[in-house]
Design a protein around this nucleic acid. Sequence first.
DNA 1: AGGGTGCGTTCCAACGTTGTAAAGTCAACG
DNA 2: CGTTGACTTTACAACGTTGGAACGCACCCT
Lengths: 342, 342
Amino acid sequence: MPASRATTLRDVALAAGVSIKTVSNVVNDHPHVRPAMRERVRAVIDELDYRPNGIGRQLRQGRTGLVALAVPNVTSPYYGELTSTLVTAARARGLTLLVEQTDGETEREREVAAGFPVRLVDGLVFVPLSMPVEELARRRDSTPAVLIGEHGDGSGIDRVTIDSVGVGELGTRHLLERGRRRIAFLGDKEPVRSPVVAQRVAGYEQALRAHGVPVDPRLAWVTPEWERSHGYEGTLTLLAAHPDVDAVFAANDLLAYGALHALRQLGRRVPEDVAVLGVDDVEQSRYTSPTLTSIALDRAVMADLALGLLVDRLAGVEGPPRLLTATHHLEVRESTAGTGRA
Amino acid sequence: MPASRATTLRDVALAAGVSIKTVSNVVNDHPHVRPAMRERVRAVIDELDYRPNGIGRQLRQGRTGLVALAVPNVTSPYYGELTSTLVTAARARGLTLLVEQTDGETEREREVAAGFPVRLVDGLVFVPLSMPVEELARRRDSTPAVLIGEHGDGSGIDRVTIDSVGVGELGTRHLLERGRRRIAFLGDKEPVRSPVVAQRVAGYEQALRAHGVPVDPRLAWVTPEWERSHGYEGTLTLLAAHPDVDAVFAANDLLAYGALHALRQLGRRVPEDVAVLGVDDVEQSRYTSPTLTSIALDRAVMADLALGLLVDRLAGVEGPPRLLTATHHLEVRESTAGTGRA
DNA sequence: AGGGTGCGTTCCAACGTTGTAAAGTCAACG
DNA sequence: CGTTGACTTTACAACGTTGGAACGCACCCT
């Protein structure tokens, strides 16, 4: 098959013996087209398999219907599921999602924030990981953007977030109620705590104090990232340094998987010896051994809220940056079962 | 900030006191622009934060640089990792990936095959799951496409595949060598075996015969899809019907996770009582309990091959459909360890 | 029968960009 | 000093589409 030029309005118009605009009117279901004419044109459209050229249309209308999603990666379950939800939610709103991966690298995130070198998308859904969001306040790119995630204030941009202090508090309280007293927080950051971590740790300490359990800052254990391997290695070193730890509050499910793996290797039973709790409630957590208790962040809600904010801006809504908070809740499973020792 | 119109070439030209084309020449690094002029224009570009409008450019050039990826979903680890690899590989080739999810539904896949209602992408990377690929031979859409996955012949389209018979044979042989004799194949399809399944089962039976082990067709166990939950339920019913099964060859890792979960619940030890083997070698498989032996399909190679085929077509290369086969290999882990009973 | 009405269709322009070709500038040379 | 030629810059058209205005026509009303 010779790569022949695609069918255009002109071809259809020529074949149907009408003007280009009439064909356009038929395609766009405009009124004031006589049924007979509509029929005739439609027939030719079908015959030639005409489909409008998106570029021409977009050029005329000044919008592309494309939204970029900039996310650390689509591989890890949490972002994968978030991406999936966003793809679907975007389609439901007539938008198409275009995926960009930053790997969480500050430099790549800065590039995304600065705007793509070629203007193509109408909006941006951004999940920055390492870059200070205050920088976003200074960005010159006028493309509407929404932030998803647990970031600090000062970005000057619409965002959807989670109550991170609440997450830290909820998880810790659950472990305390299960009788645990030496609760480690796995996934701290050095040298500077990002807002997410700072807030989660704050919630963690708040719950400890509320229960009259002393806060041991040495149990806030640092990992380079939040991948399975870091959870594995972090747990090995953590338990070597503090063998009396009876619960691990992992900053996300991946870290928790690594922790489970390490604990099994160390011969520690979960949950009898050490309870493990994650955050994100990824699908896999229903199938680990033992199944993982986790704090679920409602991704469908997040995706929908984020796109809602973005669509408003695309429609020209002005006003100060808005902040929405998605809900979270605890999914109790085997890894924190039982009454514990205390 | 008033949503002012974005800066265009005309604005820059006006501000710099030159013609539009000169600015265009500077932007595109064309020769024959005097250094002084280049400087002057660049300064204005920076000042106004001019970035070319992708649409205008694309309209002129007749291409968008966009490639659609149609995949069942980006949530499941295998497709997620494939998507991730493709996003990166596409970027390396100056293309941008746009994600479409079919959920593996035949109707959605047909729509993708028929071409998007609006012509926007230059090419398509397609991972059909349920639709008969022979239908693709009849598609009218002239957008170049590449298929990824284990499909039969007759699509008339470039594709990257895996030696599915080899996969079935390799996994089964491994289990046989570990002394297993009652090996179930988990993930068969009813009423019609797709090419993938048919080939894998063929390899499975071939290995059994080569070892002189009788083929018991009742051990090819049907699951509706290849999700964790189906692996879980399938394994429960499988072991109820055939308690003597000593190995489960799952069609993918997700099914295997479900199988591990079910076996643990049934009190069967893995691998002592029942060995489990998956396909895809997803990251998670290094962290399950026990860690999962799996057949790795080289996704990076697949992504690269697929984009290579596509880019050729975009460049106008003609010729009959091409077929490339990506490599696979066995990753042995705990779930098939030991010598078995026999 | 003439004029108005309203519908159906066509023409023109514009979206922002770049290829082509033409026009302009300048220096060096005869 | 004029011409040539090389190097810069500009004008124009076109990519495919759609909004708006203009045009044409049939029909109805008076």
